[in-house]
Design a protein around this nucleic acid. Structure first.
Lengths: 216, 216, 216, 216
DNA sequence: CATGAATGAGCCTTCATTCAT
DNA sequence: AATGAATGAAGGCTCATTCAT
C-alpha cells in the first residue's frame, strides 16, 4: 500500500489556496475588464478575500501581476512539455500540429489576458531576467527543433513562437481550426524556406520562383 | 502651375496645430513612460498647452488615445502605400522586402508605442469598427497579394501582417537586418507553403517529407 | 497721495490664500485632535477646500507639516523681534520680562501645537538644516545677550530658550502671570549664576551657603 | 536568614516576561523609528512574540504605550531615589549635581524615546491622573527641596524638572559634561534667585546691574 | 494560552474633468 | 479660445484588531 501523499501543513495549504484564488481572480478581471479594472479592491472582492490578504502574500499590486505572468508562462510551458513528450516519434508535420494546438488553445481561451500579460511583462521588465518558464518553453522548443535538424534552432524557436503568437492574437475571432491550419502553414513554410540570404536572390532554387510554384 | 493648396482658416490652422502637438506629446509619453504615465496633465505639460485646451479638441482622454491610434495607423498605411507603389513591377521577393522594411521600421522606431496602441485599440473596440486606416492598409496589401495570384488574399494579408508584427515585436532587440531577413523568410515560406488541408496529410507532396527536404 | 499698494495678481492671491487656509486648518486640527487626527482629508475639510487643492500646493502631507513649522517659527521670531526692538533701552530685568511674555504667549495660546511641532521638527530633520526662522530667533537673542555682556551668548541663548520652553510646556495649566514670574526667575538666575566650573565647589561664595541665603 | 523572595507562579513569571519583552521592543522601535513605525505588528516581531500575545496582555495599542510610559517614569523615579538617598548629607551643590546626572543620563540614553513619551503622555491624558511614578519623583524632589529650605518646594520641584528637561532635550547633541554644567547653573541660579516679585522693580540691587556683576 | 492569517476601515495620493477668469 | 486651479471619486496600501486553529 502506498504511503499517503506528503500532507501539506495547514498553514501552507491555506497560503497556497489564497494565492491561487487571488491569481485566478486577477486573471478573470484582466480578461473581462482589462487593465483598467485591475485594481486591488476588485481583485480582492472577486477572490472573496480582503485587500489585506492580498498584501499578506504580495508586496504590491505589481507583484500580483508578476505572479500571474509567471503562472501563465508555467502553464504554457507545461502544456508544451506534454505536447512535445508525445511528439517525439511523430513526423514533423504532426508534431507541429500538436504544438500549434497548444498555442492556439492557450491564447484563445483567454485572449485578452494573454495580450495584457505580454504588455505587462515588458513594463515590469520581466523578459530581461529571462523569465524561467518562458525560457524553459523556449529551450524545450529549441531542443525539439534541433533534433529535427533545423538550423539556428534557438532563433527559429523564438521566431516561430512570436510568429504564432502574432497570428493567433490577430485572428482570435476566427475559427480555431482554420486558424490552426494557417499557423501550421506559416510555421512549416518558415521551416521549409530555410535560412535566407540577407540581401536577396543568390538562391536560384528559391528566389522569385519559389512563390509562384506555391500558387498553382 | 499647380493651384495653391486649399488654405485653412487661421482658426483651423491653430486647431490642427494644437491637435498635432497634443498627439505628439501623447506619443512621446506613451513611448517613454508607458500607459501609467499617460495622463491628461502630463500630456498637456509636454505639449506645452493647458489641460483645458486638450478638452477643447478631445471630448475625453480616450479620444486622445483614439486619435493617436488613427494617426499611427494612417502613417503606417501611408508608408505601405508608398512601398507598394514602387513595388508593382518588382519580383515578389523584392516587393516583400520593401514591405517588411516598412513594417520593421514602423514597429522598431517606437516599439513601446506600437504595442500599447495595439492593446488600446482592442480596449477601445476600434478594430471592430474596422479602423479606416488599418482597413486601408489591409486592403492595399490584399490587392497586392491578389495581383500576385495569392489565394485567399484577404486572409493571407491579415495573417502576414500579424505574423510579421508578432515576430518584430518579439525580437525588437535584434539586428534589424537579420530580423528583416527572418521575417521575409517567414512570409515567403507562408506564401510558398500555400493553403494547407485542415486536418493533415492528404497532400502527398508535402506531408512529413517537405520539411526534411528543406534542411540539407 | 500714495500709490495703491502693489496689487498681487489674482492667481498669486488665490494661491496664498489657499495655502494660508490650509495651514490654519492644519494648526487647528493638531491643536484639537493631535497628530492622530492630522490627515489630509480632515485638513481639507476643515480648510473648506478639496484634498486635491492641498496637493496643488504641497507635494505631500509632510510638506504641510513642514510649512506649518516654518510659519510658527517665523511668527515666534517676529514676535521676538518686536519685543527686542522695544527692549533695547530697558534694564535687563524688564527686557527679559518682555521676551518671556512673548514665549509664554506663544506656547500658551496653542499648547499642543507647539509641542507637536517640536516633535515633528525632529522627525522631519528640520533642526538639522538650521531652520531659518528658528536660527533667526536664536541669533536675535544671542545678539541681545551679547550687548548685555553675557558670556557665551550663543549657548546661553539656546539654553534660555530651551529652559523656558521646558518650563512653559510643563506648566501650561498654571496661571500665566505666575508662570512668567517663575520663568523670569529661572532666566535671571541662570544669567546671574554665570559660567560654573565643570566639576564642583571652587566657588566658596556659593556652596551650600548660597541657597539658604536666597531664602529669607 | 532572609526568607526567599515571594515566588511567582510559572504562569505569572511567563506573563511578566512577555510584558517585559514587549515593552522593550516598543521602546526600541520608538527610539529607532519614531511614532510612525510604532505598530503592533512591528512590536510583536521585534519582541519575538505574536500579535495575539500582545493583545493577551494589553487591551489595545495605547495600553502598550501607557505601560511603557509608566515603566520609564518608574525607572526615572528609581534612579532619582537612589541619587537622593546618597545626597542627604551632601552640600546642595553636589546633591544637585547628582540629580542632574540622573536626568541627563535618562534623557540622553534614548533621546527620542523620552520626547515621544512626553508627547504621548499628554495625548493619553496620563499627566492628569498624576502618573504614580512621576508623582513619586516629584514628591521625592519636593521633599528634598523642602529639607533644604526652598520655598514653594512643590512648584520649584516641577519647575526644575521641566527646566532641566527643556534644556537637555534641546541640547542632546552637546557634550554631556558641558550640558550638565549648564543645567546645574540654571538650577542653582533658579534656587539662588529665589521667589521674584510678580511685576518687576523692587530689586534696586538688580536691574541692569545684576548681570554685569555676575560676569567678572 | 500562543499563533498569525484574515479583516476592513481609513489614509495618502493621483488624475480626469470642470469652470471661473 | 486658453488657462490652470479646484474638485472629488477612485485606488494603493497600512495596520489595529479578531478569531479559528
Amino acid at each position: 500500500m502506498p504511503p499517503p501523499p506528503p500532507r501539506k501543513s495547514p498553514r501552507q495549504q491555506r497560503s497556497r489556496q489564497t494565492v491561487e484564488v487571488v491569481l485566478e481572480a486577477a486573471a478573470h478581471i484582466l480578461e473581462d475588464g482589462g487593465l483598467a479594472r485591475f485594481n486591488t479592491n476588485a481583485v480582492a472582492a472577486r477572490a472573496g478575500v480582503s485587500v489585506g490578504s492580498i498584501y499578506q502574500y504580495f508586496p504590491d499590486k505589481d507583484a500580483v501581476m508578476t505572479a500571474l505572468i509567471r503562472r501563465e508562462a508555467a502553464r504554457f510551458d507545461g502544456a508544451l512539455e506534454r505536447a512535445l513528450a508525445g511528439a517525439a516519434d511523430l513526423p514533423l508535420d504532426d508534431a507541429i500540429g500538436g504544438l500549434i494546438a497548444v498555442a492556439v488553445r492557450h491564447q484563445t481561451e483567454r485572449p485578452n489576458l494573454a495580450r495584457i500579460l505580454d504588455l505587462e511583462e515588458r513594463r515590469l521588465g520581466l523578459e530581461e531576467q529571462a523569465e524561467a518558464a518562458t525560457a524553459a518553453a523556449l529551450n524545450r522548443l529549441t531542443a525539439f527543433l534541433e533534433t529535427r535538424g533545423v538550423w539556428e534552432p534557438a532563433v527559429s524557436a523564438a521566431d516561430l513562437l512570436n510568429l504564432a503568437r502574432g497570428m493567433i492574437d490577430g485572428a482570435l475571432g476566427d475559427d480555431p481550426a482554420d486558424l490552426s491550419r494557417r499557423v501550421r502553414r506559416a510555421i512549416l513554410g518558415y521551416l521549409a524556406a530555410g535560412p535566407q540570404p540577407s540581401k536577396s536572390n543568390t538562391t536560384p532554387s528559391s528566389g522569385g520562383g519559389l512563390i509562384p510554384r506555391a500558387l498553382p
